[in-house]
Design a protein around this nucleic acid. Structure first.
Lengths: 235, 235
DNA sequence: CGTCGTATTGAGGAGGCTCAACTAAGGTGG
DNA sequence: CCACCTTAGTTGAGCCTCCTCAATACGACG
């Protein structure tokens, strides 16, 4: 089973050594967070919160996958990020959530009420620092995604996405060339800012070139990593 | 003249009242930051640092405008954000800067060495909290930009950009409908992930529709705000 | 006043989007 | 357990918009 205490890590700001270890929470910090929060379970497809909803808590993903998206006036949904184990979400602005968040798989979350969390991190600067690093990480990811979307070609975008998912260690599956895709094609399409038709043609394109084979809807197998890398990097 | 102490603000996470005041640094915090850092001047076009460079400091913009960009393998530059007064930059990953930063106008910066700043904010959680809020703000902006780039139509992207620049209070000029554009067309094009040709056609498109007139290369005047808003929001 | 980078304009081509039809899969109720 | 229904995903044809390439106009600066 999984460890159920809230837990997250992030890439360090400074290079604190040759190994560049990720920044982890200490046991004590995890226990402290566990103490002020509560565990929340939700089934697949459940909405955690909607955009514009009163923001009263931040969440840590203990297990499962979620998507954070924004509804556009045209009715389309723009997926802004996928959330995996050890990710944090609940970005608010003036007391309102900016994005909607929905579970893609059954999820276990740790809910941290802001009226307890904020005083806590104002008392505990070392813990706050871990949050600061984690938000910084989110900023880096958002910038990367903006570059990804800037590309014109659909297959290139999909290639970049697969490389991103491959480097998502929290999804690690035994086989190194297997990339689990817990989200739907539509979700990927909206993350890549493509229509689902173009997304479908892009998957076919990658398969036709022999770079990737989509074993099932939720599993891609990389056949030619170096070519895929080249395609993903060819911005 | 301008106040030359380092200064920044951010939108609050929680709604701390009806007015929702921005979060400001206290006088004491500004003096503390001024104490550990040094003032830096740079002329227009000067490179502050390059991507991949050893990251040893964070910067606060005291005066001027800069751009943060990434070089792509194709040789193109993808502008990830423009930096204005009171913005913070110097996002690092494992001790290396991720983006390059270049001055667009003459700039005054406050340089905060990380080996002093990090211990300081680990001692001073209230100051750290302001940094946390500011990075959160950057994350929101990056998400907004990703949505902007997701649009297909060039004029719509430009309209969104103008609305963004208009709401940039740090550039405020007397006339409410005047939007100063301190950056070049190429810079805007690369921020919007357009070619400079498409950017040029988009400016013409807005002018032809009578929404905006580009008085000079660095000044746009909004003629029909409500139509421009509608166009910008029509995602 | 000349020069060089910035910005504009035009013609042609590539790629994704729209619209529409069809197939596959998952969930529900009898 | 199976038939049905609804949603997700695929495929095709045609259109539209942006990109590419090339040439020209503009403007800042020496």
């Amino acid at each position: 089973m999984y460890d159920l205490t809230p837990r997250f890590d992030s890439v360090p700001f400074l290079n604190s050594g040759p190994a560049a270890e990720p920044i982890l929470l200490t046991d004590f910090q995890r226990k402290t967070l566990e103490h002020i929060g509560e565990r929340v379970h939700a089934h697949a497809h459940a909405a955690i919160y909607d955009a514009g909803h009163r923001a009263d808590a931040v969440f840590v993903v203990i297990e499962g996958v979620l998507k954070s998206y924004r509804k556009l006036r045209s009715g389309k949904r723009a997926t802004s990020t996928f959330l995996f184990r050890h990710d944090i979400f609940g970005l608010a602005e003036r007391g309102r959530y900016l994005n909607a968040v929905q579970a893609l798989t059954p999820v276990t979350l740790h809910r941290l009420p802001l009226d307890e969390l904020i005083p806590l991190i104002k008392r505990d600067p070392m813990l706050q620092f871990k949050f600061l690093m984690k938000v910084t990480q989110g900023l880096r990811d958002a910038q990367r995604r903006a570059i990804l979307i800037g590309r014109r070609d659909a297959v290139g975008r999909l290639a970049m996405f697969l490389m991103m998912m491959r480097q998502q260690p929290r999804l690690a599956v035994g086989n190194d060339s297997d990339v689990p895709l817990p989200m739907s094609r539509k979700d990927i399409a909206s993350f890549l800012s493509l229509t689902s038709e173009s997304m479908s043609r892009a998957t076919r394109g990658l398969q036709r070139r022999g770079l990737v084979v989509f074993e099932s809807r939720h599993l891609a197998r990389i056949l030619d990593l170096s070519s895929l890398e080249k395609l993903a990097a060819a911005v």
